[in-house]
């Protein structure tokens, strides 16, 4: 049976892993290659490296960081942050990424999704959606508003509707981050995850809000997520991947235990 995936995300700035709360207040969390090595031993299923300054500072994902991480782990590796063109994607993939994650660039230029899917296959193209609940959904635009440019700008799109378009353009997976929950450790936004999972036929990775073991169980059952991504709880070793997977298996959720 296909297992639910646990993904560790490393937000990287200047070659170091950092983590903030609701996209702000960044603090250092360690060396990417060292963290990747630990996650691999603990049984993480995938690793995502996000160059978080890339979008704002017009910087390409750090090839050196990707290379250092890719040398440590033989697991699927996704790179995101500042991938705006086929050339940016090619640079990440040549450095050792298996998948690239597109965010702002996909909304600005959806044809990029299709171009990359043709060149590398849909399995290599993740569309990342940063979204938050609309305070007044009755005003239109759907229940969940999509934000771009590292969460600074409202794209005036509904998350489920955009996910569906991304799939039709060739995306292989959706990485859905709840901006309301990011870094708060108050649990994933299961309602939003489910709304997007119901809208598409490709895997949905839930992100934002992981705090306790039970949050993962909730997002796999109530949220219908195919994978769950977390950062800070793994970085600071509050929760080990081993412990999390043991818990999920006890809850009857299929996970890879190695």
């Amino acid at each position: 049976m296909l297992t639910k995936r646990i993904i560790a995300c490393m937000d990287v700035r200047d070659g170091q892993v950092v983590k903030g709360v609701q996209f702000q207040q960044l603090r250092h969390a360690g060396d990417p290659a060292e963290l990747a090595r630990r996650y691999n031993v603990e049984g993480i299923d995938e690793v995502v490296v996000l160059d978080i300054t890339a979008t704002l500072e017009t910087r390409q994902a750090l090839a050196r960081t990707i290379h250092a991480v890719a040398r440590e782990i033989f697991l699927p590796l996704t790179v995101g942050g500042g991938i705006r063109s086929e050339d940016d994607a090619a640079a990440a993939i040549d450095a050792g990424a298996d998948k690239v994650s597109l965010n702002t660039a996909a909304l600005r230029n959806p044809a990029l999704i299709t171009a990359l899917a043709r060149r590398y296959g849909s399995q290599a193209v993740i569309v990342a959606i940063d979204a938050k609940r609309r305070t007044d959904p009755a005003a239109g635009g759907g229940d969940y508003a999509v934000f771009v440019r590292s969460g600074t700008s409202d794209a005036a799109r509904d998350a489920a509707e955009w996910a569906r378009e991304a799939e039709s353009r060739g995306a292989g997976e959706i990485l859905l981050t709840s901006m309301d929950r990011d870094g708060t450790r108050s649990g994933f936004d299961c309602g939003m995850t489910r709304a997007v999972a119901d809208a598409v036929n490709i895997p949905v990775i839930a992100s934002g809000g992981a705090g306790g073991l039970e949050h993962f169980a909730e997002v796999f059952t109530d949220g219908c997520a195919d994978a769950a991504l977390a950062a800070s709880i793994f970085h600071y070793a509050d929760t080990s991947v081993t412990e999390l997977k043991k818990y999920l298996r006890e809850q009857g959720i299929p996970v890879r235990i190695c």
Partner: peptide, 14 residues
């Protein structure tokens, strides 16, 4: 679809 078993088959399987 009823069991949410999707295509592509992506992830770890036994």
């Amino acid at each position: 679809a009823a069991r949410r078993m999707k295509i592509p088959h992506v992830g770890w399987n036994a």
